[in-house]
């Protein structure tokens, strides 16, 4: 499943759809809110589900090469962070679902 297909069919709201990388294939789902654990363990090209919504989340997402960020529990980026997501072409989606349910939805769509 590509990032674009996740955007189209997940029901998650796109905070930033992302730039050129929407045809990227999602490799799996990863959940963690502690940034350096995510940095060390999130697989490249995964969908990263977290409630940590800030500038540093985006830095980790970009540097660890995740395919997209899914903000669970209604977590929201502030305006400056949303702007950075746009500038850096990082796909960010948001949902009111808890972390497990959001991850399960992506996982199910991947199968």
């Amino acid at each position: 499943m590509t990032v674009q297909q996740l955007i189209d069919s997940s029901g998650f709201s796109p905070v930033n759809a992302g730039g050129d990388a929407r045809d990227r294939a999602i490799s799996g789902v990863y959940c963690c809110d502690l940034l350096s654990i995510a940095m060390g363990h999130a697989p490249a090209d995964c969908a990263w589900v977290t409630v940590m919504a800030n500038m540093n989340t985006l830095a980790v997402a970009a540097l660890a090469d995740v395919a997209c960020v899914v903000l669970a529990e209604g977590a929201a980026l502030d305006d400056a962070s949303a702007e950075k997501a746009k500038l850096q072409g990082i796909t960010v989606l948001s949902t009111d679902l808890p972390v497990f349910d959001a991850a399960l939805r992506v996982h199910t769509m991947l199968r």
Partner: peptide
């Protein structure tokens, strides 16, 4: 509160 402090930064630097 920003998500840092897991104590994994230096281990990541070593591992990568």
């Amino acid at each position: 509160s920003l998500g840092f402090g897991a104590g994994m930064g230096l281990p990541n630097m070593k591992n990568y």
